[in-house]
Design a protein around this nucleic acid. Structure first.
Length: 205
DNA sequence: GCCCAGGTGGGTA
DNA sequence: TACCCACATGGG
């Protein structure tokens, strides 16, 4: 069932080349995952552009930056005082463990260690592991919940770990990345909060 | 003016 | 566990 949905999306949209970002660096992907919390991606792009202009493009640069400079750069993404603190915490984690994570096989301990970072919840942790480090974990966000509810008969209110396990038990790991990217594409284009648009109706009548 | 956007942490019962 | 709330900007 979930792969039938995936195949329909992939045939229609093709590869999405995720994560969407400027440099594609691991740090930029991770920072984007924090910045996009409850915020439109267009605003994240502004914040990322500000960070680049300010030269704050690495974990070390984040830790060396002044609190006000970091917060000002992050401002367009909203919750900027909170998110600038989160970025510092994540930067410390990167300095301590980035190489180790990169070189290790995925493990729950790895995910748990990320979840202990202030500002990194389940969705952010899974986004970072999947898109920055290429680890086999599935991202559950509001789009996954909506599309899963509309097109796969899932309960959108189900706990995060329940939905994550549901996908991970039914989808081969090599599709985790593209699957979530396609869901986001579908939702932004047609699977809206108010109801499905023409693409949904055409693909999933 | 209002609603929404790829959440998270802290508090309370 | 399950709720509640604060956190803040920008586009439609």
């Amino acid at each position: 069932m979930p792969m039938k949905f995936y195949n329909a999306l992939f045939r229609f949209y093709g590869p999405q080349h995720w994560w969407p970002c400027r440099s594609g660096s691991r740090w930029e992907i991770a920072a984007g995952a924090v910045l996009t919390q409850n915020c439109a991606w267009t605003n994240v792009e502004k914040a990322l552009a500000n960070l680049e202009t300010a030269g704050i493009v690495s974990p070390a640069a984040v830790l060396e930056s002044g609190p006000e400079a970091l917060a000002e750069a992050v401002r367009p993404a909203g919750f900027f005082r909170q998110k600038s603190r989160y970025l510092r915490a994540l930067a410390e984690y990167f300095l301590a463990r980035e190489q180790e994570i990169l070189e290790s096989e995925y493990s729950e301990e790895m995910r748990d260690s990320l979840l202990r970072v202030k500002g990194v919840g389940r969705e952010t942790a899974d986004s970072i592991l999947l898109y920055a480090f290429g680890k086999p974990t599935f991202v559950i966000d509001s789009y996954t919940r909506r599309a899963g509810s509309r097109h796969l008969g899932l309960d959108p209110e189900a706990p995060y770990e329940v939905l994550r396990s549901w996908f991970m038990q039914r989808v081969p790991p090599q599709y985790f990345n593209e699957y979530h990217a396609l869901i986001v594409r579908l939702c932004k284009e047609s699977c809206r909060k108010g109801g499905c648009g023409s693409v949904c109706r055409r693909l999933f009548p």
